[in-house]
Amino acid sequence: MDDKSPNEPPSLRYLEMVTQSQRTLYGVLWSLLRNADDVDDVLQETNAVLWQKAAEFDAERQFLPWALKIAQLQVLAFHKRRLRDKLVFDEGLLTALVENSIRDIDQVESRRRALAGCLQKLPGDHRTLVLKRYEASGSVNEMAEETGRSPKAVSEALRRIRAALLECIERTLAQEART
């Protein structure tokens, strides 16, 4: 554990780790909450706890698993505060998902790098579809209205693209492993 008092500001290294973990925390929180507003809220609360607990972090350990455990507790706290809302997943499944995430945490960066390459390989119209869906406030319904297609057709097109991206990522990772 860092030899520092709780009143000392976090180190620059800690600052970097918190900052660099944002994207992964966001992704895992998405898996657990599946609602943009909730994810934003819990990510913010997780960050606040990460700041408060800076002095408790053991620099010998990996940061992301520790941060993910904190995020998991924040998801549970979030739902306790909002008793009326249904938990997306119960506590057992939530824990299992976080454990799977921690187990595969080393792959997160390589998957992201692979995604960047795979996006470049998409045909132009598919790339446009992805950009439209994931731009600010893009939704399947709006895209359907714009293109004159049914929401189901748009959703199906997106499904195929996502499947293609996931397959391409797996292929890229397998290739990297071979070389």
Binding site: R23, Y26, G27, V28, W30, S31, R34, A36, L97, N100, S101, D104, V108, R111, R112, L115, V130, L131, R133, Y134, E135, A136, G138, R162, L165, L166, I169
Partner: peptide, 15 residues
């Protein structure tokens, strides 16, 4: 998890 991380990655850039 892979699927949701893909979705979140795409959202992250353009959410």
């Amino acid at each position: 998890l892979c699927f949701m991380m893909l979705h979140a990655d795409l959202l992250w850039d353009h959410g």
